[in-house]
Simulated assay, not measured.
Amino acid sequence: MPSAERPGRLPVIDLLRGLALLAMAVYHFSWDLKFFRFVDWDLAGGTGWIAARYLIAGSFLALVGLGLLLWDVQGRDWRRWAIRLNKVVFGAIAVTVATWFVIPDEFIFFGILHSIAVASVLGLLFLRLRPAVNLVLGLAVIALPIVWRSDLFDHAWLLWTGLGTVPPRSNDYEPLFPWFGPVLLGLALGRWWLRAGTPGSAVSGGATGRPLRWIGRHSLVFYLLHQPVLIGILLLVGMALGRDPQTMLSPGPDPTVQLIECQVQCEQRGGGMEQCHAYCGCMVDAVEAQSLWPALRPDAAPELKDRLRDLAAICSR
């Protein structure tokens, strides 16, 4: 569309983006409660939690596809696209650097901001495809890592693809496959929405939706700041309850996550399901009881590694 005819922001898009961000913040707050041992929820293995994570991340990335489509039909303002891309890339780098120092064993190397940055470039190739084609491609991208993976993609430089056989340790991992799929679905659904005359585009939620629309308009700032704010609040609560903040910031690994990872690796090495379950349960319980989590670090002291090997020998009997 000519510049003079470009419409303003659609309130419903800001509203939906704000809702997705709020849902993401609620999920992250649940994760923080678990990390600081305020609760004992099974975020890693609980069916409801897993479904919530996929729905929240998927809806946010679908809105990325829809936003890219609106940018296209409004005339492709490349300057605005470049400014937005630079902000997202900067945010992704900031998240990687910060988590590298705070949680080096599980730092975020390809989280949702990294995925958005890649989608903002790769999505340009799919803007003019028929919506039915993007729908099929989107479903295929989602399905591929479910039906096929290869150890060729286990190399550190290829983990961003999501097609490796061993899931990496990271607090936020949104690789190309399957997470580019929702972006393509957003392109397809957005094209059909435009052809239908954008029904509901003026929906704003009224005064109640104003905070959500504000969040939707400042999504990157909200994303970068919400976790430090939530963590700060929980640290203050913990200190008020008499807990040591240093201990809160460096708890041992989540036993549930360790058990799942051990089970996966054991079965990949050829162990039977029951055998691996017994071995991994024994190891995780013993490591937890003896506070041997530091022995799992790559730079662990030799004596800690020896104790870990002794436990492995006992649990293998």
Rank of each mutant, 00 (worst) to 15 (best):
M1D: 08
P7L: 11
G8W: 02
G8A: 13
R9I: 03
L10H: 09
I13Y: 04
I13Q: 09
D14S: 09
L15H: 04
L19T: 07
A20F: 01
A20H: 04
L21G: 01
A25T: 05
H28E: 00
W31Q: 13
D32T: 03
F35D: 04
F35Q: 09
F35T: 03
R37W: 00
W41F: 05
G46S: 07
I50Y: 12
A52F: 13
R53D: 14
L55H: 03
I56T: 10
I56K: 02
G58K: 09
S59C: 10
L63N: 12
L68P: 04
D72Q: 13
D72A: 14
V73L: 11
V73P: 08
G75V: 05
D77T: 08
R79A: 07
W81R: 13
A82E: 05
K87G: 14
G91F: 11
I93P: 03
A94R: 11
V95G: 06
T99H: 03
W100E: 06
I103P: 00
P104Y: 07
D105S: 14
E106H: 02
F110C: 03
G111K: 08
G111L: 02
I112N: 07
I116D: 14
I116G: 12
V118Y: 04
G123T: 08
L137E: 04
G138M: 05
G138T: 08
V141C: 08
I142V: 15
R149W: 05
R149C: 01
S150F: 08
S150G: 12
L152P: 00
A156N: 13
W157G: 05
L158D: 04
L159V: 02
T161S: 13
T165F: 01
P168N: 03
S170C: 07
N171Y: 03
N171S: 11
D172P: 01
P175Y: 06
P182M: 04
V183C: 12
L187R: 15
A188M: 10
L189P: 06
W193E: 11
L194A: 11
G197C: 14
P199Q: 14
P199I: 12
G200E: 12
A202G: 08
V203N: 09
G206T: 11
A207E: 12
R213H: 06
R213C: 04
H218N: 15
F222I: 00
I233E: 14
L236V: 12
G238C: 06
L241C: 06
Q246E: 15
T247Q: 10
M248Q: 09
P251R: 10
P253D: 00
D254Y: 05
T256S: 10
Q258W: 08
Q258L: 14
E261Q: 15
Q265S: 10
Q268T: 07
Q268S: 07
R269C: 05
R269M: 12
M273H: 10
M273P: 00
A278H: 11
D285A: 14
A286R: 13
V287Q: 02
W293C: 00
R297P: 00
A300W: 11
A300N: 07
A301V: 02
E303Q: 12
L304V: 07
L311H: 05
L311D: 13
A313H: 11
A313I: 01
R317Y: 08
